[in-house]
Computed example of a mutant assay.
Amino acid sequence: MCLIAFAIGQNRRFPLVVAANRDEFFRRPTADMAWWTPAEGTDILAGRDLASGGTWLAISPGGQVAAVTNVREGNPDPGASSRGELPIKALAEPTSTLLPSLNATASHYAGFNLVTLSESGGWYYSNRDAHPGRTLFRGTYGLSNHLLQTPWPKLLRLRTAFARTIEQANAYADDLHNQLLPLLQDTSTAPDHQLPRTGVGLETERFLSSPFIIGDQYGTRATTIVTLDDGGIITVTEQSWGTQGQALGKRQFRWQREQTDSGIIRTISETPDRRSPHGR
């Protein structure tokens, strides 16, 4: 996952909104978003990285969202452990135990950013941050492949448009999802003087500078929108992409979270996989 915008408490109707693009090599095997149960915890809604078994973004039945992005480095150490296990750990453990666990094992992973989000706030951790482990309060945030809120051009473009859309959203989740999806398909590249210098070379910096990345070998593979409304209804839309921005399957999940004596349960309504006849 390489670009995320999220809003906590910025719209009374939708106290939590998350919009994200996952960028990856197309050759890396991936399972589409679905409900599954990792060994570390209860059910999650997530795609699955079939190469390492983890995920990049996961949602709990209660509407908590956890996501990870890589930190872009010129010559990265691959790490002894997969970063894809981090969102699963974040949903399975309270922050009080997750923080010391990450502090003890941070060097086992290549550079990463981890966020855990709910309608009441969030938490952010990066093993490249001088002071890892930050509580997030109400606001609109952006995260790419550097630290939280690092003002890379694509992050600023998305965060600005995202914040405006959240502010003007009506009462219908589907309308909001339909307004947010095109923002994440922005292919505008940044001018050279605004590009970060992360050690990957100028040509690659240009290629990676748009919110939506189009390529033959590497590019945006999934766009995911998550909303939690004030009635406890969680709506998730995910659009998958192929090479050169080809639109593949689109899935939607919607459920009402309910508190029972045994915890939070969900009632699921799913939209069948749909393919766009028009591409991007």
Rank of each mutant, 00 (worst) to 15 (best):
M1A: 12
I4M: 05
Q10F: 06
N21Q: 03
N21G: 05
R22D: 04
R22I: 13
D23I: 08
F25Q: 00
D32E: 11
E40W: 09
I44W: 09
I44E: 02
A46W: 04
W56E: 05
I59N: 03
G63P: 06
A67C: 09
R72N: 10
N75G: 10
E85L: 11
E85Y: 10
K89Y: 14
K89T: 13
L91K: 06
P94W: 05
L99E: 12
A106R: 12
Y109I: 09
G111W: 09
T116L: 01
Y125V: 11
Y125S: 02
R134K: 15
T135K: 08
L148H: 03
Q149F: 02
T150D: 00
P151I: 10
P153G: 05
K154A: 07
R159Q: 06
A171Y: 13
L181N: 03
L184I: 09
D186W: 07
L195C: 10
R197T: 15
T204W: 10
E205N: 01
S210I: 04
P211T: 08
G215F: 06
T220V: 07
A222K: 02
T223G: 11
L228I: 10
V236K: 04
W241T: 07
K250H: 15
Q256F: 07
E258H: 14
S262H: 08
E270H: 12
T271I: 08
D273S: 14
